[in-house]
Amino acid sequence: MRRVAPLGSGTVQDRVALAEIELCGELIIAASAAEDRLSLESIDEVLRVGEARAESGET
């Protein structure tokens, strides 16, 4: 049987889910401010893909 936290029992956090929600929000804001579709490079910039690659040592 799988246990779940009852409603109102305190704070349950999933750091990965919260980070994804934050990035999605930033992407929505960028898309709504753009006059046209975002380029792949713009999307990578908003999602900080270059920073993630630099931190992991990828090229």
Score class of each variant (00 low, 15 high):
residue 34 A to G: 07
residue 16 V to H: 05
residue 14 D to S: 06
residue 57 G to K: 09
residue 9 S to M: 03
residue 10 G to I: 00
residue 22 E to D: 14
residue 7 L to M: 09
residue 24 C to D: 15
residue 43 I to N: 01
residue 39 S to M: 03
residue 9 S to W: 04
residue 34 A to M: 07
residue 36 D to L: 02
residue 36 D to F: 10
residue 48 R to L: 09
residue 5 A to D: 06
residue 51 E to W: 07
residue 7 L to V: 09
residue 16 V to T: 14
residue 3 R to F: 07
residue 54 A to V: 02
residue 1 M to Q: 14
residue 46 V to Y: 00
residue 2 R to P: 09
residue 55 E to P: 02
residue 53 R to A: 12
residue 39 S to F: 05
residue 59 T to R: 13
residue 7 L to A: 15
residue 23 L to W: 01
residue 59 T to L: 12
residue 16 V to C: 06
residue 58 E to H: 09
residue 11 T to F: 10
residue 51 E to L: 12
residue 53 R to G: 03
residue 59 T to N: 11
residue 46 V to R: 02
residue 47 L to R: 04
residue 57 G to M: 05
residue 39 S to R: 06
residue 56 S to C: 04
residue 13 Q to A: 08
residue 32 S to F: 11
residue 16 V to K: 06
residue 17 A to R: 07
residue 5 A to W: 01
residue 29 I to K: 13
residue 11 T to C: 06
residue 51 E to S: 12
residue 51 E to G: 09
residue 40 L to C: 10
residue 48 R to F: 05
residue 40 L to D: 13
residue 25 G to P: 00
residue 46 V to I: 12
residue 31 A to D: 09
residue 22 E to V: 05
residue 6 P to I: 02
residue 50 G to K: 14
residue 16 V to G: 03
residue 6 P to M: 06
residue 44 D to H: 12
residue 5 A to T: 05
residue 9 S to G: 08
residue 32 S to L: 15
residue 35 E to R: 12
residue 50 G to D: 14
residue 35 E to D: 14
residue 43 I to D: 01
residue 2 R to S: 07
residue 14 D to F: 02
residue 20 E to C: 02
residue 5 A to F: 02
residue 30 A to P: 00
residue 34 A to F: 11
residue 3 R to C: 05
residue 7 L to S: 12
residue 41 E to I: 06
residue 9 S to N: 07
residue 22 E to Y: 01
residue 49 V to H: 09
residue 21 I to E: 14
residue 39 S to Y: 09
residue 2 R to W: 01
residue 44 D to S: 08
residue 8 G to E: 04
residue 51 E to T: 08
residue 33 A to E: 15
residue 36 D to C: 04
residue 47 L to N: 01
residue 19 A to W: 01
residue 24 C to V: 10
residue 5 A to M: 10
residue 46 V to W: 02
residue 44 D to I: 00
residue 19 A to D: 13
residue 15 R to D: 03
residue 16 V to P: 00
residue 29 I to V: 15
residue 16 V to Q: 09
residue 11 T to Q: 12
residue 58 E to C: 07
residue 39 S to V: 01
residue 54 A to H: 06
residue 47 L to V: 08
residue 18 L to E: 14
residue 9 S to H: 07
residue 33 A to N: 15
residue 51 E to A: 13
residue 49 V to F: 05
residue 6 P to R: 15
residue 8 G to C: 04
residue 22 E to G: 07
residue 25 G to C: 06
residue 53 R to L: 10
residue 30 A to F: 05
residue 10 G to S: 03
residue 43 I to R: 05
residue 6 P to S: 08
residue 9 S to Y: 03
residue 23 L to T: 09
residue 13 Q to M: 03
residue 58 E to S: 08
residue 23 L to E: 11
residue 46 V to N: 00
residue 55 E to R: 15
residue 27 L to M: 08
residue 53 R to W: 08
residue 35 E to V: 06
residue 10 G to R: 00
residue 15 R to N: 04
residue 11 T to V: 13
residue 21 I to Y: 12
residue 16 V to R: 10
